[in-house]
Write a protein that binds this DNA or RNA. Structure first.
Lengths: 116, 116
DNA sequence: GGGGAATATTCTTGTCAAGGAATATTATTT
DNA sequence: AAATAATATTCCTTGACAAGAATATTCCCC
């Protein structure tokens, strides 16, 4: 039974594809932090930090724990697992062997399209 | 000598964070294809396919080989390597052990900020 | 319970990028 | 060298979204 190739969740990627959110994620890699800490260390205004964190949270990239006045944000493992298996499905690309599949497909394309 | 954590290239991610481009990349996972083939299989109009491919090409995700009239696009290994090591740097997150770093940092944050 | 700290939300504005349509370019075939 | 096929480019419009500024909310402490 052939395992079908993983399809990457778009929301995860678009959440990461914003410079400040990426910085937040890379900052949280070293451990959980409060909103204030994050804003401070990245020189963000508090509202923008909150907004980015909300988006990261909505997309399951981070989770919050309320601690009195503060909210402590930390990374969730799932999206990274997903990303890992997605990248893994490109192993053959990384190892640069399309074998002769390349040539093979090229020939195929030169044939009459009518049978596709 | 501590290896610093990898920083993900933003251009790679934003190139991937667009649904149709992601579909193209996942299609090319199975091997190189011409523009026409890509447009056909994904039900894209040819100009949009070309435009997305140009962006993927500008960001080093694909490379082109001219073959007479056709252009054959295929994935480049580098961005996937980069993505792989980036994800790898979140190993500890994936394995869900922030150990007691969590608690530790929490206490740290409750201290006076003046010394930070 | 009032003041202040930490965080969230709302509204507005400007920018950027994707799609559509049309057209330009390059190569091929007769 | 025309006609056609494959691909690239340009222009325009529209929608999404990030930043800024202001304000709302929640919680703690005296």
């Amino acid at each position: 039974m052939p395992r079908q190739n993983p399809v990457m969740d778009m929301t995860t990627l678009s959440a990461l594809a914003e410079p400040n959110r990426m910085r937040i994620v890379e900052l949280l890699r070293d451990g959980p932090l409060t909103v204030g800490e994050i804003a401070d260390r990245l020189s963000l205004r508090q509202p923008q930090a909150s907004k980015h964190l909300k988006m990261l949270s909505d997309n399951g990239i981070v989770e919050v724990k309320a601690e009195a006045n503060r909210r402590i944000y930390k990374l969730r493992p799932e999206p990274f697992h997903a990303l890992e298996s997605w990248v893994e499905s490109f192993r053959h690309v990384m190892e640069d062997r399309f074998d002769n599949l390349d040539e093979y497909l090229r020939k195929l394309q030169n044939k009459d399209k009518s049978e596709l």
